[in-house]
């Protein structure tokens, strides 16, 4: 059922157009070929849930900004991680905020990782590499456990 890694989409939840653009560029530099879905606010991110429930392929990874219009990132994270099945999707919180409170909350809600967006673009690309590495590793274990569930 799971398509191969590179064809699985990545969902990027980001309101800031500059950050969005930079993220896309950073991914392009890392030559990530996965289709990228973009949600520009928390509500839009949540609107994906019914699609996934009705059989559309799940994203391999969700990159989530915390400070979002309408519904904030922590709420999106909460709903995703409270979902009976979708909570298996790895969520990386990617935000400008380096406040401890945010980090604690995100981890308490079940974020798989928390990465502070650097100002320096070079470092930003490193972060993209980090994300890529992270979801590869995560997906591998996720896929093997999903396969394991399927075959009796």
């Amino acid at each position: 059922m799971k398509p191969d890694l590179s064809s699985q989409p990545i969902l990027l939840v980001e309101d800031n157009p500059v950050d969005l653009d930079l993220t896309l560029r950073a991914f392009a530099k890392r030559k990530l070929t996965n289709p990228l879905h973009v949600a520009r606010d928390g509500a839009e991110a949540l609107s994906w849930i019914p699609h996934w429930e009705s059989g559309e392929p799940w994203p391999a990874l969700i990159l989530l900004d915390l400070k979002l219009p309408k519904v904030d990132g922590l709420e999106v994270l909460r709903q995703l991680k409270a979902h009976p099945t979708l909570r298996a999707i790895p969520v990386v919180v990617l935000t400008t905020s380096s406040e401890d409170v945010d980090m604690q909350k995100a981890y308490l809600l079940g974020a798989n990782s928390y990465i502070v967006k650097p100002v320096d673009f070079d470092k930003f690309i490193e972060v993209a590499a980090q994300v890529e590495l992270y979801w590869r590793v995560l997906n591998k274990s996720f896929r093997s456990s999903a396969d394991g569930e399927k075959s009796p």
Binding site: N16, V18, D19, L22, R25, L66, K67, T95, T96, S97, S98, E99, K117, P118, V119, D120, F121, D122, F124
Partner: peptide
Amino acid sequence: AYSVSHDLKAPLRGIDGYSQL
């Protein structure tokens, strides 16, 4: 402070990012 940390840094990233690009 929270807004500062979040919003003040975002434009800087744009400045730095696009300068680099």
